[in-house]
Design a binder for these strands. Structure first.
Lengths: 345, 345
DNA sequence: TTGTATGCGTTATCAA
DNA sequence: TTGATAACGCATACAA
């Protein structure tokens, strides 16, 4: 009799043992019913399932993790949830992960490199099976990523773009180039760029590169890029540029939507109308942008899809699939027309 | 010798055993170093800690959970992350939980009642130690909450307001009442309310009640409340009210900020200026509101603090503290002035 | 202060 | 197809 190896017949907490006892089979069979149903005869399977359902039995996640060495949890590190881009992405991650039977454990790094490291440590300690990360700069973060690889912990970078890692995101440079062309076609010549700190974000850097490249290709003089620290205003810099009638650009490309909104507000405070006096394009595609008036014109990233795809890729790796670095093609953005661009001439 | 109870001396994965071996103590002592450091002599403790640090040892979360019957994970269910109110709240939850040594596991319910139930089941199955929930309606959700109590699983409702449960949030009704008075003081008489589906959200219902009560008290005729389904436009209803010069209110109170932004956009499309033709007040205090022009006037909830306080309360309960239902006072909102209100007369 | 021994609930291996 | 058994890594009661 299998009971022999449990001294106490008095099983009060509900567990596989309890179910086994009540359905007259061994615990092993109960386990199989949940994990390899095809190995169990129809009769016993349905019997066990019924008993389990009746008692509301749920397999114990900790025990399962301990035994299988996998937690079915995906760790997620994003810069912040205050930027709707990442909040939307997280929603995509969450829903997709859930559908695949995984839980998620999110941490916000606040664009802070030391916090990025702490977060990784925390997530690894939580026994996550894989990671989805958005880091300030993949190259700078390389040591930590190597450490993950050494531990055999799969990860996917979201939004980052690097040939050296598995990344899912968009090609910011190309997208910005295209929007520059779009503006040129609309008659703009004096096009400027307002960017997040390039040193703190490879995405901001890529946007700037796209701007410079496109202006160069169009043989237009590029204006000095205005850089602004995360969640900071750079009022003076913007004011200097926008109040000088000679230097004032007719169009401003912003490396993210929040920056664009802030710029619009400041432009208005300087007595400028958007888009009459200055056209504005954002980058990100946050949902709220479409609710405004004028609606924000923006390069809309598929944030939810980025999150979902990242989940797919990390789960594939958890299942042992090898994904080659740089093999994932960038996702296409869609240009959301909005009402902050005016055609000139 | 303690090794006797592990047949395989060949411990390759790093565990408490490995650390014990290398620092010449028993596994129990290593465990104590991490859990009850005061019970270990200074000498051994530092020796063990050094070895552990050197090997980068991290206690295995699953094993610890299995043994202690607690996961140190807090489950979180919010309606959506697309509304910055909840994204900000989640950031507060996350940071506070981390600081307290807890991980979080978030799920978005999408204001969908069946999904709310699924989410709870999922979180419970994930062995969370406690829950932070925002539900459409606490009363409707009562059975699930009772089930949680029966299992001894602590939970806190965030944003919901009910005397029957431990809630952390704001008193929407009073806050709206105050804003009505504020508008009246500013000379408004024809004040209207644009609300989310009251049947689907106790918060929306409370806002409406506040509006009705305040209008009543001021002996002003309240206008019919315009209701709009989640993430839907109710263009026709708004248009009907706003295009009729006789009925058109001079001020519109919206039960959430997103609704307010949408309303402002529609008003403009109808040729109305905000605030010249109609004043607007939102509810929520989303950060982006302050970046707009005109900046959104809003009843600013302390979303981050709500999240943090919810964490405190749920952890207190996890530690065995009993929190009486309704004992938590509502948090005060601050009125964010903005630029969408015009004083009349 | 430290060590011994056990079991948390599950899955996987092996045998029947 | 099913059952017996061991082990996953840790914390704790108890012994020393």
């Amino acid at each position: 009799m299998w009971r022999c190896f449990r001294k106490t017949l008095h099983v009060d907490r509900m567990s596989i043992l309890r179910i086994a006892e009540l359905s007259g089979v061994s615990p092993a069979t109960v386990s199989r019913v949940f994990n390899r149903p095809e190995q169990v005869s129809d009769a016993t399977r349905s019997r066990v399932l019924q008993v389990a359902a009746q008692l509301g039995y749920q397999p114990n996640a900790a025990a399962r993790s301990l035994r299988t060495q996998r937690s079915r949890i995906i760790g997620v590190m994003l810069p912040t949830l205050r930027d709707p881009v990442f909040a939307e992405c997280l929603e995509g991650i969450s829903s997709k992960a859930l559908r695949e039977g995984y839980g998620i454990m999110p941490i916000a790094s606040g664009y802070d490199r030391s916090k990025e490291n702490e977060a990784i440590v925390l997530l690894v300690a939580a026994n996550v099976d894989g990671l989805i990360l958005t880091v300030t700069d993949p190259d700078w973060f390389a040591p930590a990523l190597v450490a993950l690889s050494d531990q055999g912990l799969p990860y996917v970078l979201a939004y980052n773009q690097s040939p050296d890692y598995v990344c899912v995101g968009v090609n910011s440079q190309v997208e910005v180039e295209q929007v520059v062309h779009r503006l040129i076609k609309a008659g703009h010549r004096k096009i400027a760029m307002l960017s997040g700190e390039r040193a703190a974000s490879d995405r901001a850097a890529a946007c700037s590169q796209g701007y410079l490249a496109a202006m160069d290709r169009a043989r237009l003089p590029s204006l000095p890029i205005i850089e602004v620290a995360f969640m900071q205003t750079s009022e003076s810099a913007v004011e200097a540029v926008m109040t000088n009638d000679r230097s004032r650009p007719t169009a401003m490309i912003c490396s993210n939507d929040l920056l664009a909104l802030r710029f619009i507000r400041q432009a208005r405070q300087l007595g400028l109308d958007v888009p009459a006096d200055v056209s504005v394009v954002g980058f990100g595609g946050i949902a709220v942008g479409a609710e405004l008036s004028p609606a924000l014109s923006t390069i809309a990233q598929p944030s939810v899809e980025i999150g979902q795809r990242a989940v797919e890729l990390v789960i594939a790796q958890i299942h042992g699939e090898k994904i080659a670095a740089g093999s994932e093609p960038p996702m296409p953005c869609s240009f959301r027309q909005g009402e902050t661009i005016r055609a000139l001439g």
